[in-house]
Design a protein around this nucleic acid. Structure first.
Length: 497
RNA sequence: AGACAGGUGGUCUAGAUUGGUAUGAUUCUUGCUUGGGGUGCAAGCGGUCGCGGGUUCAAUUCCCGCCCUGUCUACCA
């Protein structure tokens, strides 16, 4: 903000930056003005989640948890700390995560060292599988599916952003053990279905699942599959990922079972990590507009706001009608309804405030409406205005509520396809990426064999190879865009957060 | 992690080549006015000028270190 704006004397309650002009500034304003997070806590990468975000995030957790439980997962809660010797049991895992770990080294008196350092979990494989080896005895115990909702800690990224990237973040992690590799692979597919169901259907975030190249896997995994979402800034962001761990962890952690023939075997493990805080960030970034937040109906902290239009001398009458409306809505629906009867600010100010906060439905009632026995119903996105007979109001609100999320989803799903552009040269790839698109290219391989080409492509385009599409791939190329070898794999290349 | 730019009442901001504890707006509180898309007026509250050290009679201002924020690069969910 310039000095001039600061002195302009205008209220600065609303969003002043256009989303497509300066995405970062827009996002920062949204976070502060809609009271989603507070970054003034003064520890880098650790932010305060404020009420408005916390309510939506809790609803997201609830949906996700119930879906996981429907699929046979049981909940548990692990300690936040992991003893050093557990943490170091799987070599690749350690190599990947060690640089990001916060260590607890002292406790009690000043300078009193712990005998063994404790890691603040960056993820819980090494905590859980230590226990799994004690819990799992026989094939009768399998599949063994557990999840926990928790916070994890990673010392990384100077570029921290509220919700997108923090040093402490909120997620769910599911860790499942199976008797066969095929069962484990089936779990990976289930995780991907869960992701589509949650992110696309419930949160209206368009995603594509990619199998990550060999050089870009989760530390310790056989294969990694990750959902990428595209933000309006033209960059993709990695959302949930599911990992086929095979027996890479079963061996060091001794996760074994006795099969039906009485022979001891190692279990096959998968893990799935939807980072709810990041999903929330991506959701508000994708759905939000110049007015502020736009939320799926189920996730809005307030779903219907009633705004009375007061005129001098008619306050009682207007209030009476509004209270009636509130009461009926609360009786006939389970929506979160708010009557904004503050008398010290104008209706216009209320409209703007609740729109900024993403309330899906607004009901306005004033003297004019009362005379006509109607109410005014306005939806947040798209902004439609309906004049409805007061007796039909509840039905209309239910109808709008039912269709609201689906409308939002359709609007954003369509956008994804337009952003993918097929290209044949690295130069073209660079161009389309710089104009905020995803480049679809051929590369000789996503095994380590393709690593040199990948480096060349990533250097030439300034973007990253996100991997091979997991759903059906209709595009094929003649040659690798880098080395020219025939029969390449079709992959996607984009800038990432 | 690296480069650059910053940090002044709750929020935003002026002030520094000229060192002497600070400008304005907004928020908030009280009262009036107003009210169908961000009303107006009056009064009041609110600041150890990010933290620590140095230079100085005196530091918000100059110097050093640290913390935090932003933008752009390097790695992850």
């Amino acid at each position: 903000m310039s000095a001039k704006d600061g002195q302009a004397g205008k209220p600065q309650k609303g969003i002043t930056v256009k989303k497509d002009e300066d995405f970062s500034a827009w996002y920062t304003e949204l976070i502060t003005k809609a009271e989603l997070a507070d970054i003034r806590y003064n520890v880098k990468g650790f932010i305060v989640y404020r009420a408005w975000a916390t309510i939506s995030i809790k609803k997201m957790y609830a949906k996700y948890e119930s879906e996981l439980e429907k699929n046979g997962h049981m909940p548990l809660v692990m300690p936040t700390v992991i003893p050093e010797r557990n943490f170091f049991m799987e070599a690749d895992h350690v190599e990947g995560f060690a640089p990001e770990v916060f260590w607890v080294t002292e406790a009690g008196g000043e300078g009193k060292k712990l005998e063994e350092r404790l890691a603040l979990r960056p993820t819980s494989e090494t905590a859980l599988y230590y226990m799994y080896s004690m819990w799992i005895r026989s094939y009768q115990d399998l599949p063994f599916k557990r999840y926990q909702s928790c916070q994890v800690f990673r010392y990384e990224g100077s570029m921290t952003r509220p919700f997108f990237r923090a040093r402490e973040f909120h997620w769910i992690e599911a860790h499942d053990v199976f008797a066969t590799l095929d069962d484990a692979k089936a779990q990976v597919r289930e995780d991907m279905e869960t992701t589509y169901k949650m992110l696309q259907d419930e949160f209206c975030i368009p995603i594509i699942f990619f199998q990550r190249p060999e050089w870009d896997k989760f530390a310790g995994a056989v294969h990694t599959y990750a959902a990428d979402a595209l933000l309006d800034s033209g960059k993709v962001i990695q959302l949930p990922s599911t990992h086929l761990l095979g027996d890479n962890f079963s061996k060091p952690f001794d996760v074994k079972f006795i099969n039906s023939e009485g022979v001891s075997e190692y279990g096959y493990i998968t893990c799935y990590g939807p980072a709810i805080s990041r999903i929330y960030g991506a959701m508000i970034a994708i759905l939000g507009d110049d007015q502020g937040l736009v939320l799926p109906f189920d996730l809005a902290p307030v779903q219907v706001v009633i705004v009375p239009i007061y005129f001098k001398g008619k306050e009682q009458m207007v209030n009476g009608k509004c209270q009636e409306m509130e009461k009926v809505l609360k009786e006939e629906t389970d929506f979160s309804v708010k009557l904004d009867d503050r008398e010290y600010i104008t209706p216009g100010e209320k409209f703007n405030e609740w729109e900024m906060r993403g309330v899906p439905i607004r009901v306005e009632i004033g003297p004019r409406d009362i005379k006509k026995e109607q109410v005014v119903i306005v939806t947040r996105n798209p902004r439609d205005k309906h004049f409805i007979k007061i007796d039909d109001a509840v039905e209309k609100i239910k109808e709008i509520a039912n269709g609201y999320t689906a409308k939002l989803r359709d609007k954003h799903l369509r956008k994804f396809d337009d952003l993918i552009v097929m290209v044949e040269t690295i130069g073209e790839a660079r161009e389309v990426i710089e104009s905020g698109h995803i480049a679809c290219i051929g590369i000789c391989s996503i095994d380590m064999r393709g690593y040199d080409c990948a480096e060349n492509i990533e250097k030439g385009t300034g973007a990253f190879i996100r991997g091979k599409r997991v759903d059906e791939e209709s595009i094929s190329f003649e040659r690798c865009i880098s080395c020219g070898r025939p029969d390449p794999v079709t992959v996607y290349c984009a800038k990432s957060y």
